[in-house]
């Protein structure tokens, strides 16, 4: 039984490798040999994890993965607990359907990060691709809980159909929070186009500028009490750069999407 398990990439990956088997909670029950025998997927061929990674440690739910992992997909899929630290970047679907534990990525993440996530923490120091925290294809609900904290930007359709939980990022692409049911999207910068279309009860908060969608209507300029709470909580737990002027600031509130039930909001920071 080790303090941590460390997986070190043996040779650079040249094409996508499916790594849904890498999940911290699962590693807690496995010996080094058993971990090495887990299946990674190269197309339809299965490759032993031990052939791709050098493994140190066993029986631990703390896992470090080292190497250029931009082609490594599905890490932490359906993870329920434990902790994965990824020293560099990682591929698509990281933390998909995860319900607990923490995945911390020092670099960037690919598309579908935290897709259909239900709980836990996905922290990305770099940027993330499209559909972070969004729904599985054809599903009516996106993430239903947990937190996705991206210090860089995220791509399109971030938090689309989100049901609960929080997504924080420095900037977003188009279509953030489309058809949100509830939950929070907090953007430290400007809000991209098409944000919040079809939003039912979700909150989209932008510290930068907002191009207000035509299906939102201005309500008032005020100090939303829940914003202080949210920002303080994020600042305390994730050491995010959120200023007091944002915590206690004045925000313009826009209600929408009025084509739907209209109980959602876009909050745009104005001033202290």
């Amino acid at each position: 039984m080790s303090e941590r398990i460390t997986l070190t990439l043996r040779a650079a990956l040249i094409r996508p490798l499916g790594a849904e088997c890498i999940s911290a909670d699962r590693f807690a029950d496995l010996s080094e040999q058993e971990i090495g025998a887990l299946e990674l997927w190269d197309g339809h061929a299965s490759v032993a994890l031990g052939d791709v990674f050098a493994i140190r440690g066993d029986h631990s739910s703390s896992v470090t993965i080292e190497g250029d992992l931009a082609h490594l997909d599905g890490v932490g899929t359906a993870m329920r607990g434990g902790e994965i630290a990824i020293a560099g970047s990682v591929g698509g679907g990281v933390g998909a359907r995860m319900s607990g534990g923490a995945i911390r990525i020092a670099g960037n993440a690919g598309d579908d990060a935290g897709i259909a996530m239900a709980g836990g923490l996905l922290a990305i120091a770099g940027s993330a691709g499209d559909r972070a925290g969004a729904a599985l294809p054809g599903a009516s609900k996106g993430m239903t809980g947990g937190e996705i904290i991206v210090r860089g930007g995220v791509g399109r359709d971030a938090g689309s159909r989100m049901r609960r939980g929080t997504l924080f990022c420095a900037s977003v692409g188009e279509g953030a929070g489309t058809a949100m049911i509830a939950g929070n999207i907090i953007v430290a910068g400007d809000l991209g186009d098409g944000a919040g279309l079809g939003n039912k009860r979700g909150s989209i908060l932008a510290l930068g500028n907002v191009r207000v969608p035509p299906t939102y209507a201005y309500a008032c300029t005020y100090r939303p009490p829940h914003v202080s709470l949210m920002l303080l909580s994020l600042r305390a737990r994730h050491e995010l750069l959120v200023n007091d002027e944002h915590v206690h600031g004045l925000y313009q509130r826009y209600s929408g999407d009025l084509a739907d039930i209209g109980k959602g909001e876009i909050l745009e920071w104005r001033s202290m």
Binding site: L197, P214, T215, L258, A259
Partner: peptide, 16 residues
Amino acid sequence: QLFLASLRASLAGRAL
């Protein structure tokens, strides 16, 4: 898009 949204809002009793 705005037309479709307005149509749905209108059926829900809201003007847009």
